[in-house]
């Protein structure tokens, strides 16, 4: 029965701390629901493929440009230091280690957090405030499975593929600079580049990219799915998706690097 006396509920600690813990709890239940729904049939294959197209294919142009310039500029910046020691022949190996271990996963994740994260946050936020998510619910459709599971899965699957592509394009950028300065053939460049790369480097980068993809997907979907306050809420959902995703990506980077280094 209606028992409250019309006064606002008093916070347990302070309003801010209460809101923080409530946010943590809500995020946890959202993640738990993702895994629960992921294990339930039917699998939304068509929507998943559509999302992979949106996340993967539609990011290719931006990823290509960023990856290529990253490889090229990193090579150009590293050359003066290495030539001081007469070690420019180490450039392919140095660039490959930097790109495959750190730059490719990180650059891909940051680009996708900006492009894909904001797009998912805004799309779901807009669907939420215009009652399209409620409309799915009352039409006996599971909106979480259709909208959230497919998007999170698409970002988790596509990020490692995009990361591999970024690494390749980045190495091509590096090769261009090395070729123009040292007249190295492409075969020699790639042989030297992969000389010091181990299976652990590939595995760790792939795992990192998957973790970043999952983070971008789940954060953006959560922000969009819980958007309020009309169009202002949609903008806020898009913006918060990017900010929180990037913040978490950097924290994950630090943790994963520590773990992987302890395995070397």
């Amino acid at each position: 029965m209606d028992s409250s006396n019309g006064q606002p509920d008093k916070p347990l600690i302070t309003a801010g701390i209460d809101a923080f813990f409530l946010g943590v709890y809500n995020t946890w239940t959202f993640v738990a629901r993702f895994f629960r729904e992921l294990c339930r049939l039917p699998f939304e294959r068509r929507e998943f493929v559509r999302q992979c197209y949106q996340v993967g294919y539609k990011s290719l142009a931006l990823i290509s440009l960023t990856g290529f310039i990253t490889g090229l500029v990193f090579t150009k910046q590293s050359r003066p230091s290495l030539s001081e020691f007469g070690a420019t022949s180490w450039l392919p190996s140095l660039v490959a280690i930097a790109i495959i271990r750190a730059l490719a996963p990180l650059v891909t994740a940051l680009i996708c957090a900006g492009k894909v994260g904001s797009s998912i946050g805004a799309e779901l936020g807009s669907m939420k405030v215009t009652e399209q998510i409620d409309a799915m619910e009352v039409s006996a459709i599971n909106p979480f499975k259709y909208l959230v599971v497919t998007r999170v899965l698409a970002t988790t699957v596509c990020l490692p593929i995009l990361m591999a592509y970024t690494a390749l394009v980045g190495l091509m950028g590096s090769y261009l600079d090395v070729h123009l300065n040292e007249q190295l053939s492409i075969t020699t460049f790639f042989l030297k580049a992969f000389n010091d790369i181990t299976f652990l480097d590939f595995a760790a980068s792939t795992f990192k990219a998957m973790a970043y993809g999952f983070t971008i997907g789940i954060v953006s979907c959560y922000q969009g799915y819980h958007a309020t306050q009309g169009t202002q809420g949609v903008g806020k959902a898009a913006n918060t998706s990017v900010v929180i995703s990037m913040f978490l990506i950097f924290i994950e980077e630090v943790i994963i690097v520590q773990v992987v280094n302890s395995l070397r």
């Binding site: 399209q132 409620d134 619910e137 039409s139 006996a140 599971n142």
Partner: peptide, 19 residues
Amino acid sequence: LRELRMQVGFSFQSSALYD
């Protein structure tokens, strides 16, 4: 609840069409 919702149509104020 899903079974029941198939028996109940809900027309939203904003129409809520999937845009």
